[in-house]
């Protein structure tokens, strides 16, 4: 079960450019991804929107595998800033979850 983590929601809400809510789940991005990251970005974004902190930790491999090539972003019909969103997540994982910095 996904438990909504309010701190994660607040943290993401601070980033005004994070626009995953515009995604309407069409799947164009997943189909185009040269890394074959099937999960990315639509399901991932859904987890972020819901504040599913545990899922993000489980998915950190996927989040760091993205090439940031923007093939998906260039074709997203909803103008989701996919690579920006992924950078936001990486920074969240590094700073808030793993506290590497």
């Amino acid at each position: 079960m996904i438990q909504v983590d309010e701190r994660l929601l607040e943290r993401i809400a601070k980033d005004k450019d994070f626009n995953a809510q515009a995604c309407f789940n069409c799947g164009t991005c997943s189909a185009l991804c040269p890394m074959g990251l099937g999960l990315l970005p639509r399901e991932l974004f859904r987890y972020v929107l819901l504040g599913a902190r545990d899922r993000l930790r489980e998915l950190s491999d996927v989040i760091f595998s993205c090439l940031l090539c923007r093939l998906c972003e260039a074709n997203c019909p909803r103008g989701v800033r996919i690579t920006h969103n992924i950078r936001t997540l990486r920074s969240y994982l590094v700073k808030d979850e793993y506290r590497i910095l």
Partner: peptide, 16 residues
Amino acid sequence: IRVKDRLTGGEEVEVP
């Protein structure tokens, strides 16, 4: 509030 969310592939989500 607990629900099977169709937008997350039917996963159960709990919202405070």
